[in-house]
């Protein structure tokens, strides 16, 4: 059986598709979006995270680190990331849980065991399992095995994806996926490549293919001020989505600087320092534009 790297299993998720769900976050992502709010999902390998608010400064991690990567500075253990191997020795001795390794290897059955714990909630709420990330398609074989196993277990499956993968993979996965939460980050090819690190066209191509295949798709659009909130871009979204066979429902996700906290936990610089969320009026205008074009549209996940 395949094994994969998972960085979180979140139970009782109510914003990741229909009903009450368990969301499995797979590690690794080919995109590198400036506004990414799951930066711990980008790196395909396990990574150390430290929550400053929990730390009591006991220094157990300093003593435990095998690589001399942790040292006390002003009562707080700072980690030299260049020397950290994410071995987890410091995590084992941390009394507060301030330190954690994000990313753990799972087999398919082990993962299914965790997912199935909430089966009764799925059944009552018409929920199920959602694979998210990172980018779940980044671990295609593992994802496929997981989806197959979930379908065999009679679970509703959803995939939260940015759609950047070979078309065959996407279509293969689609056979075991009941719902796609398809992120469409931008409509300007150049800007897309610049801000997300990959070309837009294969993503659109995959969305068209899913549409053709009559997959159930919810479009998710992050609204990033100064990037994709202008009228021309919104028009481009509407034009493209209107050109599909089906009018897929649209979810608008206004940017929020909440992700900043997560960068701090990984000792990463926050790329959008100081960027303000879009104004309520602008979000409403965008919502109205989609609505006028005949889309079912909702603000929020």
């Amino acid at each position: 059986m395949e094994r994969g790297i998972v960085f979180a299993i979140k139970r009782g998720a109510i914003h990741d598709g229909s009903g009450i769900r368990t969301t499995v976050f797979l590690k690794g992502c080919p995109l590198n979006c400036l506004w990414c709010h799951n930066p711990e999902g980008k790196d395909p390998n396990p990574v150390l995270s430290t929550v400053r608010q929990r730390c009591i400064g006991c220094g157990a991690c300093v003593a435990a680190c095998l690589n001399g990567a942790v040292s006390m500075r002003d009562g707080y253990p700072e980690t030299d990331r260049s020397r950290c191997t994410a071995c987890g020795t410091c995590v084992a001795v941390c009394p507060t849980g301030a330190r954690a390794i994000l990313g753990k290897e799972y087999g398919v059955n082990e993962l299914l065991f965790h997912i199935e714990r909430d089966r009764v909630f799925f059944e009552t709420s018409e929920g199920g399992v959602t694979f998210s990330g990172g980018e779940p398609l980044y671990q295609p074989d593992f994802l496929l095995s997981c989806l197959r196993a979930c379908k065999a277990a009679g679970l509703h499956t959803a995939l939260d994806t940015a759609g950047y993968a070979p078309k065959e993979t996407v279509l293969q996965v689609a056979q075991y996926t009941d719902l796609f939460l398809f992120d469409l980050k931008d409509m300007d090819p150049e800007r897309h490549r610049e801000n997300c690190g990959v070309p837009l066209e294969p993503i659109l191509e995959n969305l068209r293919a899913l549409d053709e295949a009559e997959a159930e798709v919810w479009i998710r659009i992050p609204l990033i001020p100064g990037v994709n909130c202008d009228e021309a871009t919104i028009d481009a979204y509407i034009r493209f989505l209107s050109g599909l066979k089906r009018r897929h429902p649209v979810f608008l996700l206004p940017y929020h600087p909440v992700g900043e906290e997560k960068y701090r936990r990984l000792d990463l610089p926050y790329p959008l320092q100081g960027l303000e969320p879009p104004s309520g009026e602008r979000v409403e205008e965008i919502r109205a534009a989609f609505s006028a074009a005949g889309f079912r549209v909702r603000v929020g996940g």
Binding site: K10, H15, H37, V51, Q53, R54, P254, H256, V258, E261
Partner: peptide
């Protein structure tokens, strides 16, 4: 608490947030 796009433990967030 949920703010935008994800849910987190309130107590683990920075004071500003």
């Amino acid at each position: 608490v949920r703010v935008a796009g994800y849910t987190d433990y309130f107590c683990d967030l920075s004071r500003e947030l």
